[in-house]
Nucleic acid binder design. Structure first.
Lengths: 257, 257
DNA sequence: CGAGGTTACTTTACGCTGTAAGGAGTCGCA
DNA sequence: TGCGACTCCTTACAGCGTAAAGTAACCTCG
């Protein structure tokens, strides 16, 4: 098995996510850990091993057993929720709109793109889930705060915020997963893609005839930037180009009614 | 644990997905099963129990043990790949463009939306993965075939196809997961959302002040369609509205260079 | 027709997972 | 000083995917 995605008990998760955590004097041994240290350890493990991390691995990194974590955190799903939100603390909470909303949204999207690249496991967390934690809130708020300057009504803006969010996430996923598949087999991007299409051609030689339009799209390529790995070229190009279209659409909505 | 996503060995998956499967005479007992019957059983189980289905459950549905499946299928990940592609066989392979590309893309998006609603587990399958199977190919081809009539160059179209795909999938995910969370606790949509925001308000009473723009967006609601459940209203509205913006963007790209 | 090899399927078993249950040791407060 | 709360550990369990080995069915060839 490969991958998990957590959705913990929302009540427990929300309480932990927004906790004011007053450090009162209490009986018993001093806590050697804290929710924060566990969440950090969890993020570190997930960054290394992907989403298939185990509670035992997180405990080990802290010099404890897996069960020790359950003193602080109700379960793995809730821990994932906490990790998810805490990772988002890395992201800016506001963007300047002096130059207008368009460059600001572009910056937002690029920041998200890079963020997903740093923490690909985030993309496996049960996505598009209702916003739960403060940092996830802040990230969406930062996008909404840019777009509200367009003067569009709230109804319209909700759809747009969602669309931008979905698009960036989806685009980031394309890269992250292809990259993961490549590195799992120890191949570079290029070899991996080549091997894949080789198998495909072998098994279905008439691929180009059966899916002529896709073949057409595939063959109209940009000149390649030698700085970037093979895969990135493709993905970045599609990301940029898709984002432009989306932004054009928003511009259209701003211009007319 | 909740959810899994499979990415099988691409070589094996591709061979199974595109198999010409010649039924030759061979020694040994007659096969009581087939790859197809296993894939169908897998889809049925996943439709009922979600992605957390087990090989034992699939075997049981066919009156076999889990291990019997391994005669036909290399492993669970590959089975998931097969299920994923087979489910997509439900979708149309082409859309009329007599009225132009815009209504056709809308139809495509709505069909996808409904498809994801019928098979929510599909959304958990490692997404935005490189296209592997014939039906997944056909689905993307059907979208590309509509959009190619815009006359836009291939480079541009690839970004657009990706954007539409990501958007529809992301939007569908919002509903599917919220719905799943609601039904897991046995609550209706409305109660679930209400309970969630109640906890949030209890823990962070100043939510509206801390995230003023989101509060603004949230409060500008459309009149509710009493035909639909609470959640659906919201999601469908956002889906429609986001799609419109995206389509406007494409229209802009068609109009100017 | 009978032997041999191939195949379908079962049984058993292993290592892994998340986590429930109970016990050991540590500390604040009465 | 002891009680009760608390942290952390050990043990244990049910479930998972699947490797390995065994059994029975069947075709092909002598």
């Amino acid at each position: 098995m490969v991958v998990y995605a957590g959705q913990g008990d929302p009540r427990r998760s929300i309480e932990l996510l927004w906790r004011a955590s007053v450090a009162e004097q209490r009986p018993g041994p001093k806590p050697g850990l804290s929710v924060d240290s566990i969440v950090d350890a969890g993020i570190a493990v997930a960054d290394e091993q992907g989403m298939a991390f185990s509670m035992r691995a997180v405990g080990e990194r802290l010099g404890r057993t897996a069960m020790a974590l359950y003193t602080y955190v109700p379960g793995k799903n809730e821990l994932i929720d906490l990790m998810y939100d805490r990772a988002m603390a890395e992201l800016p909470t506001s963007y300047p709109v002096a130059d207008g909303w368009r460059p600001a949204v572009t910056r937002w999207a690029e920041d998200m793109w890079e963020f997903y690249g740093r923490h690909p496991w985030v993309l496996q967390v049960s996505q598009a889930r209702p916003v739960l934690g403060p940092h996830e809130f802040a990230v969406v708020e930062s996008l909404a705060a840019i777009l509200v300057t367009t003067g569009l009504p709230g109804r319209r803006l909700r759809g747009i915020v969602g669309a931008v969010n979905h698009f960036v996430r989806g685009a980031a996923q394309s890269v992250a997963e292809a990259r993961a598949a490549g590195s799992a087999t120890g191949e570079g991007d290029e070899e991996w893609w080549y091997a894949r299409s080789a198998v495909l051609m072998e098994v279905e030689p008439e691929l180009a005839e059966k899916f002529p339009v896709l073949h057409l799209l595939e063959s109209d390529r940009d000149p390649v930037d030698p700085e970037l790995p093979y895969l990135e070229n493709d993905a970045v190009e599609n990301f940029r180009s898709g984002l432009e279209v989306l932004l054009d659409g928003i511009e259209g909505a701003v211009a007319k009614p």
